[in-house]
């Protein structure tokens, strides 16, 4: 057995798990702690990816770009722009009840996708953006993958620690209070609308960062990457399975789902070649089945939300 090949594959999986973990952490702030049903994750992921690509890529004739800014500015820009776009969206949409919010955010993500596809002067349109620099991209294959993994791990760790700290602070308690009983929180003088908007913007900024990490890893981005299946619903499954309301659960869910998604293809490849093509759909089925089983037998997820202090369990 080829150890180096396996190691390369494991490193690649870990990088994608890290990127999905950031998305899941962002969603956890919005759904897990604030009860905001954001079904437009792909939109904020795309904004982050395109912002960082435009800020850092080489000049190109047919689209905006060529600023060739340093990478860190690109990533910071991705978070800032994702947050800046999330703000007016949140301002308008967060007044809806959760089910309406879900519909509104699906619409918003679709609008973002269509703008990216059609506004060629800005985003390169359907051809996308190529020539995005990758940090340590000049190293040999394995070293370059390992260096990128190190970057991703540092960022996920930093995001995890910061989000965890924020949620243990009074802000986190307040958010849970608003989520569990909005009227009671309002009666105690908490400004519900403002706090929700904060959570929405924070979560979206993290999603933007994940998009930036993704675009530099692939050195390119095309609108095909903003598919809702792979950039919205997969993340919801990760969070629900891992345990919404628990940051470690979000990261674990990202790892479990991505490993099932990726490794199950190796398993189905062992089936006879006559049914190889049909077998590719088995993994979609396995993901769906996993979600059903988790919802049936462990609806709180693998790592449920920890109960803080002496507050009674949620109903």
């Amino acid at each position: 057995m080829d150890i180096i090949g396996l190691a390369n594959y494991a490193v690649f999986m870990a990088i994608l798990i890290g990127i999905y973990a950031l998305l899941a952490l962002g969603l956890n702030i919005q759904w897990g702690f604030s009860g905001l049903f954001n079904a437009g994750i792909a939109g904020f992921f795309a904004i982050g990816a395109y912002t960082s690509a435009i800020l850092t890529s080489l000049p190109a004739a047919h689209r905006l770009g060529g600023f060739e800014l340093p990478l860190l500015l690109g990533w910071a820009g991705a978070m800032v722009v994702a947050a800046a776009i999330a703000w007016p969206i949140g301002k308008i949409c967060l007044r809806f009840r959760s089910d309406y919010l879900a519909i509104a955010t699906i619409g918003v993500a679709e609008i973002i996708r269509l703008v990216i596809r059609t506004e060629g002067w800005l985003t390169g349109g359907v051809r996308g953006i190529t020539g995005v620099p990758r940090p340590f991209g000049d190293l040999p294959y394995m070293q370059s993958q390992l260096a990128y993994l190190a970057l991703v791990v540092v960022l996920v760790l930093a995001a995890y620690l910061l989000v965890e700290r924020q949620l243990k602070a009074p802000w986190g308690r307040m958010m849970r209070a608003i989520r569990d009983n909005e009227n009671a929180a309002a009666a105690m003088g908490k400004r519900v609308a403002e706090r929700r908007l904060q959570a929405f913007v924070f979560g979206s900024a993290l999603m933007g960062l994940a998009g930036a990490l993704f675009v530099h890893f692939n050195r390119s981005i095309t609108p095909e990457a903003i598919d809702p299946m792979i950039a919205t619903f997969l993340i919801w499954i990760m969070l629900i399975l891992g345990g919404s309301g628990n940051n470690r659960g979000a990261i674990l869910g990202a790892a479990v789902i991505w490993i099932i998604w990726s490794v199950s293809e190796i398993l189905t490849d062992r089936l006879p070649t006559e049914i190889a093509i049909q077998a590719k759909y088995v993994r979609v089925f396995i993901i769906g089945l996993t979600l059903q089983l988790v919802l049936r037998f462990r609806p709180e997820g693998i790592l449920p939300e920890r109960q803080h202090g002496t507050s009674p369990p949620r109903s």
């Binding site: 396996l6 190691a7 594959y9 494991a10 999986m13 870990a14 798990i17 890290g18 973990a21 470690r248 990261i251 674990l252 790892a255 479990v256 490993i259 990726s262 490794v263 190796i266």
Partner: peptide, 13 residues
């Protein structure tokens, strides 16, 4: 957990 999960994935492979 992520590291463990990754290792488990590799072993499975």
């Amino acid at each position: 957990k992520k590291t463990i999960a990754t290792l488990v994935g590799s072993l499975l492979g």
